[in-house]
Simulated scan of single mutants.
Amino acid sequence: MHERILTDGTVVLSPPRAADVDAITEACRDPEIARWTTVPDPYTRADAVHFVGTVVPDKWAKGFPDWAVRTEPDGRVCGMVGFVPREGDDLEIGYWIASTARGRGLATAAVRLACGFAFAADGMGVRRIGWRAFVGNHASAAVARRVGFRFEGITPAGLLQRGVPRDVWVAGLSADDPPGPADGWPLRPERRLR
């Protein structure tokens, strides 16, 4: 797959480059990103160099894009969004937003843009996208719900996080689903429960 740059006027999605390594390193050292993702913890600059120089190009070559989330006008990386293969023909979307950029709708805009590309005939042409998040990740669930993902349940020990099985929330979005927000979530993910 050829690399593509996407924009909707709010965010710009472009493949991360060597110049982004320090911003990615800084963002991935946030305890909240480590808590809710599978990035290495502690996260080192070498991890970011490997991600940008090896992981991302390999994924693009296999048809699974990863983009840096940027805002205009500075173009600095404020997050990542991308796809991984899942069982069957499904894709799974993953994303994170740096602590300095949260609460501005950037994750929602980036996920909408990436999903639109995945569904488009001149993009990836997929029919369905999956989403999983560790149970309790209300911020990720709020984004998925706003984009239109339909809640499908909980998978016990559904993902490993640094060797430890964790329960996950599961949702899906089909190309013909109406735009979000989606009903049917067991709780309003926008409301944090403690």
Rank of each mutant, 00 (worst) to 15 (best):
V39C: 01
F149I: 08
M124Y: 01
V21Q: 07
D41E: 14
V55E: 01
A109Q: 03
G75V: 12
W36C: 02
D58C: 09
G153P: 10
R76F: 01
T108F: 00
A182S: 15
F119P: 03
R192C: 09
H138T: 14
V56E: 02
E3D: 01
D58W: 02
T54W: 00
R150Y: 08
T37R: 02
P40W: 03
W96S: 05
P73R: 10
H50A: 08
R35T: 12
T71C: 13
W60G: 03
S14W: 00
F151S: 06
A27E: 04
A142R: 13
V135T: 15
A171C: 12
R146I: 09
H138N: 15
A101R: 03
E26L: 15
Q161N: 12
C78D: 06
V84D: 11
P181S: 11
D22K: 10
E26H: 12
A27D: 06
I24F: 10
G79W: 03
F119A: 03
T44Q: 11
W36H: 11
D41C: 07
L193I: 15
S140E: 09
V126E: 08
H2T: 01
G148E: 09
V77T: 13
A114E: 05
V168P: 05
D66E: 14
P181T: 10
P178M: 09
A182C: 08
G116C: 01
D58N: 15
P165R: 07
F119K: 01
D177G: 15
T7N: 02
T155D: 12
L13E: 01
D90F: 07
A18T: 15
Y43M: 00
E92F: 04
P57W: 10
G125Y: 01
M80Y: 00
L6I: 03
A61S: 15
A144C: 13
I154Y: 05
F64Y: 15
W60I: 02
I33F: 07
A144I: 09
V135I: 14
V170C: 13
G163N: 13
D30E: 12
R128A: 07
P31G: 09
C78I: 15
A34V: 10
D22L: 14
R194W: 11
R145C: 14
V69E: 02
G123V: 04
I5F: 00
R188I: 04
P65T: 08
G75A: 13
R166I: 09
R194G: 13
G125L: 05
R150L: 14
W185H: 08
A48V: 07
A139D: 07
D47C: 08
G153C: 11
F64P: 02
A68G: 15
T71Y: 06
F83C: 05
W169S: 11
A114M: 05
A121Y: 00
D74T: 14
D41H: 08
G9W: 00
V168E: 03
L13W: 01
R45I: 03
W169P: 06
L113P: 03
G103M: 11
V164S: 11
M80T: 13
A109L: 00
